[in-house]
């Protein structure tokens, strides 16, 4: 699914290198958790993978199903099946959630040479997906994320993910700002989307999320590099002991 080789990323405005020779392989259907202390490069990695302007890749390559996506624009990466669930979904006044969803779906379909959804087909699809996530049609008429609670915003992200049916989902600290009930709704939403054809990169600070979305592999990110990889027990080790001993071992 995804192969990251010797990736180096710097933030253009600051000039400092944040990702420094990162290697990671995610197999089809795999849920890979990336954990790391503050400032280790978690968000930079998610932005670099999804193609945000201002994140400059200076070295390395990212192969997504064999294609180097680093030359592609953000919208082209999305159309090819990459999805970033934002840590802080942005509020966009004046753009109704429903219209946005339709524009996103049909833009991606167009880019892939598929026919656009008709309005009735689209509405049916939205109804099904939003019902499962406890999102009302009323909420979808509101401007995108405007006035949504933290939980609503994250559920709206999962709704988008369910509608767009990506191949690889990058989840950037999806648990931040969620209470335990919302965490469960969001995790159930993600688990429902798991399958042999779809992979996830779950970026998080805490093991808590990984109790609900059980990963196949866990990777520790520190100073822009993966310093240790293991199974789900690695997350439990981190929860119990913190990052200090793993960082010390790697040094």
């Amino acid at each position: 699914m995804l192969e990251i080789r010797n990736l180096h990323v710097r933030i253009e405005d600051e000039g400092t290198e944040i990702i420094r020779g990162l290697n990671l392989t995610v197999k089809d259907g795999e849920v890979a958790a990336i954990m790391g202390p503050n400032g280790s490069g978690k968000s930079t990695l998610s932005y670099a993978l999804s193609g945000r302007d201002g994140y400059e890749v200076t070295e390395g390559e990212v192969l997504f199903n064999g294609v180097n996506i680093l030359e592609m624009e953000a919208d082209e990466r999305a159309a090819s099946g990459l999805f970033l669930a934002f840590q802080y979904p942005v509020e966009i006044p004046g753009v109704a959630t429903m219209n946005f969803l339709k524009a996103a779906m049909n833009s991606q379909r167009k880019a892939r040479g598929e026919a656009a959804y008709s309005t009735p087909d689209f509405i049916r699809k939205v109804r099904e997906a939003s019902g499962r996530l406890g999102i009302s049609m009323e909420m979808l008429k509101r401007p995108l994320n405007v006035g949504f609670s933290g939980g609503e915003k994250k559920r709206a992200e999962i709704l988008q993910m369910a509608m767009l049916e990506p191949k690889l989902c990058i989840m950037d600290e999806t648990d931040s700002g969620l209470d335990i009930d919302a965490l469960k709704v969001v995790s159930d939403g993600v688990n429902a989307l798991r399958g042999p054809e779809r992979s996830f990169i779950v970026i998080t600070h805490y093991q808590r999320l990984l109790e609900h979305i059980v990963p196949d592999s866990v990777h520790v990110l520190y100073k822009g590099r993966i310093i240790q990889s293991g199974g789900k027990e690695l997350a439990q080790h981190l929860e119990a002991n913190g990052y200090a001993d793993i960082i010390a071992d790697a040094a």
Binding site: R52, E73, D75, A78, A79, I92, F100, A111, Q160, L164
Partner: peptide, 20 residues
């Protein structure tokens, strides 16, 4: 970026935001 990360090309995304 949010709109583009959802697959909406830049020109269209800009126009959506200006319209809104």
């Amino acid at each position: 970026f949010y709109l583009r990360a959802r697959g909406i090309p830049e020109r269209e995304a800009r126009s959506m935001l200006v319209q809104a």
